[in-house]
């Protein structure tokens, strides 16, 4: 059972999440040519090692997370919110907490 550190909810079990696919796929514009859509929808890499993928915290906050997971060892080296605005917001929040914790001299 792998465990994922959700930026909102903390470290939670795999059973709270659903796998939502390859996060390296760039979906094209809605009016992009057929070849681009074909590539995005049907062609997938199957890497051995670190893989960037989406997981949804369906049994928690509902967020889509971007997770870097090693497909061999299940080691997870990065977790952030998939929504860039949310990722930036939570990232900043985390940085603030750290400042406080280290008791910034100003």
């Amino acid at each position: 059972m792998i465990r994922i550190d959700c930026p909102f909810c903390g470290l939670r079990d795999h059973s709270e999440f659903t796998y939502e696919g390859d996060a390296t796929v760039q979906y094209p514009a809605l009016d992009a040519p057929m070849e681009d859509w074909y590539e995005a929808v049907f062609l997938r890499e199957n890497p051995r090692g670190p893989h960037r993928e989406f997981w949804r915290h369906v049994g928690g906050c509902g967020s889509f997370l971007e997770v870097v997971r090693d497909t061999v060892t299940h080691e997870i080296t990065e977790v952030k919110l998939a929504h860039p605005g949310m990722a930036a917001a939570t990232g900043k929040a985390a940085a603030k907490t750290t400042e406080k914790a280290t008791g910034g001299s100003e």
């Binding site: 659903t18 939502e20 949804r56 967020s63 889509f64 919110l81 998939a82 860039p84 605005g85």
Partner: peptide, 13 residues
Amino acid sequence: MLHLANLLQTWWP
């Protein structure tokens, strides 16, 4: 619901 959430969070944030 999942489809819409996916689109809003990962396609069209």
